[in-house]
């Protein structure tokens, strides 16, 4: 079962709209946008453009912050994090594709704070599939899905972003 590309595009559009509203409500001016490598960065790229954010897009690779390093080791090739701006005192929009256990977000927040002290962090997820293991919630969600632990959802890209489901 896949959500077809047009539907994913629609989802991205509504996500952008909701984020714009939310930022306005919270009065978060001139936010910085950071996507989590790789799927989150694709979503962020779309949102960055849609919201016409002035500062360049930041990309976070949380490989060095993962809590399962001891189990799965270091992935040999790592695209480094690239945050081409100073983070201190700024409002940050953190973007991921699929919110699941919350561990990735925990790692991302840790890394962000190693770069500096942001004024706030707003979490955006294209899909929230449930299954949280940490007290993490997204501020803006494209779609909520209830998946069983055996099911997987993955965003393919970077051209024509498309959500794919898989049963394991």
């Amino acid at each position: 079962m896949n959500i077809d590309p047009t539907e994913t595009t629609a989802l991205l559009k509504s996500l952008a709209t909701e984020l714009r509203v939310r930022l306005h409500e919270l009065a978060r001016k001139d936010p910085l946008m950071i996507g989590i490598h790789t799927g989150g960065a694709w979503v962020a790229e779309y949102l960055h453009q849609a919201l016409a954010i002035a500062e360049p897009l930041g990309v976070l690779n949380i490989n060095f912050y993962r809590d399962d390093f001891s189990q799965s080791g270091l992935h040999p090739v790592v695209t480094p994090s690239d945050l081409p701006f100073a983070i201190d005192g700024r409002h940050v929009v953190l973007v991921d594709d699929v919110l699941h256990t919350g561990r990735t977000i925990r790692a991302a927040l840790n890394e962000i704070f190693d770069y500096g002290r942001p004024a706030s962090v707003l979490l955006v997820a294209l899909v929230d599939r449930g299954g949280r293991e940490l007290p993490v919630r997204a501020d803006v969600v494209g779609r909520k899905l209830s998946l069983t632990p055996g099911q997987q959802i993955k965003l393919s890209g970077p051209d024509a972003l498309c959500l794919e489901f898989r049963d394991c």
Partner: peptide, 14 residues
């Protein structure tokens, strides 16, 4: 390649 990533870490505040 991995060292490339760590080189970036050295340029951060922490």
């Amino acid at each position: 390649d991995t060292a490339d990533s760590f080189a970036a870490v050295g340029k951060r505040a922490i």
